[in-house]
């Protein structure tokens, strides 16, 4: 895998991309702030979609097309990987992020030289017992630990209050301290149906890093989801559309063989959280304009939902 990556990077450099060189030197000089920029370095795609593979292979191909893991994670950095672990469901229910995908991401972070990789989510019914069930049943705790990630249970002490000056509705949020304390923030949502937001993808997944989620529900879910992105966007969004819950979301069916799950074997990667949500919406079979928060985020210039304006690289395995 690593070899493949190296040849790929060399390939980019060979093409004489100036930004590739800058990225390379930034690696040496350790200037991660450059890499936190939202727009893709010139020449690299804005959005990558890969299909027809297993989660680990999909991710390997996807991150290769995105320019390699080193575009996002530098040697010695700390990383927080934020999957969706919100529901006490088995992986096949597709209510939570694919554990193998999470595991692969953690492994690649370490391979890229990450010092520490944290994995956490605030579950939807945040009692200790429920959180334990979510972490266990989703298979994410086990998978992430197998890749040496530090799996962090959420507790009340770990939040810090922040201001969102430009927020239309959401003015403050209590954000989990790992988001501040780590260098790289990787958002790994699962694409699924959602009863009250139509779809849950990358933007919606950020509700798992804040504590005042009831304020979102009370004051307007779509606007608050949008407003939070004004405060913090992930450095990389990886949408798990391997199994997609097509109805009865977000919790899905609590059975061994759910009837509402379609195996799409797809993942999407992008720095642009709005673009990745728009693309995932299309994968689901809906239009981005129908989803309140995607439309709002586009209007507030958080990202671009017009996929035609983006440089998209697709790959079918």
């Amino acid at each position: 895998m690593t070899d493949e990556n190296k040849t790929n990077r060399r390939e980019f450099l060979k093409k004489g991309l100036s930004l590739g060189l800058i990225a390379g030197s930034a690696t040496i000089l350790g200037r991660p702030d450059f890499l936190l920029a939202q727009n893709a370095p010139q020449g690299l795609p804005d959005l990558v979609a890969v299909r027809n593979g297993e989660p680990d292979a999909l991710f390997s191909k996807g991150i290769e097309l995105m320019g390699g893991m080193n575009q996002f994670v530098k040697k010695g950095q700390t990383v927080v990987v934020k999957p969706n672990i919100g529901f006490p469901r088995l992986p096949q229910a597709a209510a939570t992020t694919n554990p193998l995908l999470v595991k692969t991401i953690v492994e690649r972070c370490y391979a890229a030289g990450a010092r520490r990789v944290y994995v956490f989510d605030n579950v939807v019914l945040p009692t200790s017992a429920n959180a334990r069930n979510c972490y266990r049943l989703s298979g994410i705790e086990e998978a992430a630990k197998a890749a040496r990630a530090i799996v962090v249970p959420v507790d009340d002490f770990s939040y810090r209050k922040v201001e969102i000056p430009d927020g239309k509705t959401l003015k403050t949020a209590e954000v989990h301290s790992l988001i501040f304390d780590t260098d790289v923030f990787i958002n790994v949502p699962v694409l699924k149906h959602h009863s009250s937001a139509h779809l849950s993808i990358a933007m919606k997944n950020l509700m798992g890093i804040i504590k005042n989620r009831m304020e979102y529900h009370l004051t307007g879910l779509d606007q608050c989801i949008t407003d939070f992105c004004l405060y913090r966007k992930p450095d990389l969004n990886i949408v798990d559309a391997y199994r997609v819950m097509m109805s009865h979301g977000p919790s899905g069916q609590n059975v061994e063989n759910p009837t509402n799950v379609q195996v799409k074997k797809t993942i999407l990667l992008s720095r642009d959280i709005v673009a990745v949500d728009a693309a995932a919406t299309k994968i689901f079979g809906r239009e981005p304009e129908e989803i309140g928060y995607i439309k709002m985020a586009h209007a507030q210039k958080i990202g671009n939902m017009n996929l035609k304006e983006l440089k998209i690289v697709t790959f079918a395995m």
Binding site: A49, R51, M246, S247, H248, Q253, V255, P258, T259, N260, V261, Q262, V263, K264, K265, A279, K282, I283, G285, L307, I312, T314, A316
Partner: peptide, 18 residues
């Protein structure tokens, strides 16, 4: 009772919708 509204298994759509 869950109605089987969506076909299970691999979805038949080819390529990408964008």
């Amino acid at each position: 009772r869950h109605r089987r509204r969506h076909r299970r298994g691999q979805d038949t759509q080819e390529g990408f919708p964008f």
